[in-house]
Amino acid sequence: MKHVVVPKDSIKDLLESLMTDYKIVAPVREGQTLVYKAVNQVDEVILNDEAAYKSPKEFLFPQTEQMMVFSKDGDIRITEDDTKTILFGVRSCDLEALKIMTAVFTQGKFIDTYFEKKLKNTVLIGFGCQSEKKGCFCGDRGLNKGYSEACDAFLTDNGDQYIVQIITEKGELLFGGFAQIDSQKAVSCESGGQALLEINSDESTLFNNVDWGRISEKCMGCGTCTYICPTCHCFVFKDVVEKGEAIRYKCWDSCMYPKFTMHASGHNPRASKKERYRQRILHKYLYVKQNFGYTACTGCGRCIRSCPVGMNIKSVVTEIMEGLK
C-alpha cells in the first residue's frame, strides 16, 4: 500500500485542477450544518472534524432520479448520466454504507444499472474522523473512524499536511504525483475491529419474541431516520407528465410509511407502526446480513441526532439483545 503526503495548502489547488474533468462533491457549509454538495468554488470545501448532516448517498442514489422518458411518439428514451464525480471527504461510516448499498444494487441476477454507472464514474476519497460526535457509535459497529479501505484513497489529517493512503488505481490517478513516504512512518491505518453491536439471533425469535410494540411506542413514523440513513435504499417509481411526455423517476421511499407495503386491495402486511419499526430494525440488523453478509448500520449516529422524539437505534439494539439473553 502506498502513502503520499499532501500539504494542506495544496489540496485546494488539486481540487481546482480536477474541476475541469470532474464534478466535485465535498463537505460545504449550509446554514448551521455541513452537507455534501457539488462545489462551485474550492474555497467552499470544509475539511474539519465536524460530522455532515446527511451522508453523500444521494450522489450515487439520488433522492429523485430521472430514469426514462416515454415520448409523445410512443418511444422510450433512457436517461443517461455520464458525469464523472469525485466524492471528497467521505467518512468511514459513509464509505462502509456505500459498500453495503453497492452489494444490494449490484449483486444478484439483476443489477441496478443506474447505480452501477454512477459508481463506476465516481472516485471516492475518504477522510478520517478525529473524534466521535454525539450519537456516533461506529466503533461499536466494528469500524475505525480514522480509516477505511472502502474507497479509492483515504486522507488523514496530520497537522499541516494530509497523509493519503492510495488504495486503488483511481486513487493513484489523483494522488500519485505527490511525495511518497515510508508506510511504516504513516499514521496507523488499521481497519476496524470486532463489531460489538450486533443482533445474533434467528429470524423467528427476533420477529416474534421481541416486544416491538413497546420498543416502537414513541416513534411518530415521520421517516426522517430513513431519509438520513446512509444505508437506507428503498425506492418507488413515480411518473410525471410534462409537455405530453411521461417521465419516470426513481424516488426514495420509506418503510416507515403505511402506504409503503399497502396493496391496491387495501390489505397491508405492515399495517401498524410496530410492524414497520420491526422491519426497519431487522432489515438493517438481520435481513441484509442474511442476504449480503453486512449489518446495514454503520453507527453514523445520524438517525439518533435527527429523531424528533429521541429514538435511539443503539439503545434499541442493545435492549433487544439484553432481552433475548
Partner: peptide
Amino acid sequence: RMTCGVGKCGKCNIGH
C-alpha cells in the same frame, strides 16, 4: 406491493 421486481426496492420482503 412491489416497485422494482428485481430485489432492490425493499418493499416485498417477508423476513429476509
